[in-house]
Amino acid sequence: MSSTVYVDRGSSIHRLNPVTKLVAMLCIIVIVFALPVWWVSGLVLAVAIIPAAVVSRCGRKLSRISATILLPILVVLFVVQGLTFPGGKTALISWGVFTVTSEGLHFALGIGLRLVCLVLASVLLVLTTHPGDLMSALTARGMSPKFGYIISSTLQLIPAFRDRANAILLAQQARGLSVRGSPLRRIKIMMPLLGPLILGMFTDVEDRSTAMEARGFGSTARRTSLVPVPDSSVQRVSRWAMPMVSLAVIVVPFATGAL
């Protein structure tokens, strides 16, 4: 009942070690941002992200989530940069005071495809990796258990928090208060909503910290984990190989003067 978008489709991507997926995602992002030409992003999309999405059987959900995130950004990006890009010289279409420049569109295409890669790669990671597994894997690798605790705990608190907010909002509406009207009026309605919600959540903190200490959270012992993290020697090698390949992909074009 956590607030993540993880879907368990049991694919081979799902079964990978979470750190392997994290490294792959970071490599993809570094490549598309280090080689800022639009076709590099297109190539990464075609040979890495889309095949992985197909194998993961999460393609539909991935495209739905990513489209919701990306569409507004891309539309604004192309409109704003197409019309007002400071380096725009070559006019493509002119319509009254508005002029679309090819430099502006080219700039928007470069940024836009990069953002598509960034969003698709990270949403795919989140869709195929349970946050608890990601945290266990990273904690096993030396990340402070406090990070894992905060992230997992927040993910499970948000639905509880939202339920309380909705309950209070419904109560306000039942008392005949409308959530429409001017911003000032809406703020007036927000305040009595936020007050009790926030205070209640904060006063629980004392209890929760006592309960965590009682279960050894402050212990300096080396943590163990009930559920083992899946791994294989192929993955262990690829976690080193992927950054190396990325580095080569980035450095070689410069060394040979191709870019």
């Binding site: 956590s2 349970h130 608890g132 258990p145 894992g148 605790y149 997992s152 705990s153 927040t154 499970q156 608190l157 629980d204 209890d207 929760r208 309960a211 965590m212 009682a214 279960r215 050894g216 959270f217 212990s219 012992a221 080396r222 943590r223 163990t224 984990s225 009930l226 559920v227 083992p228």
Partner: peptide, 25 residues
């Protein structure tokens, strides 16, 4: 308030303290 929130199943929740004290799997 005693639920740690750090774990996603009852099984792991019960084991949370044991993990912190470093008990073998």
């Amino acid at each position: 308030n005693q639920i740690s929130g750090a774990r996603y199943t009852v099984r792991e929740e019960i084991a949370f303290g044991l993990e912190n004290f470093g008990v073998a799997r």
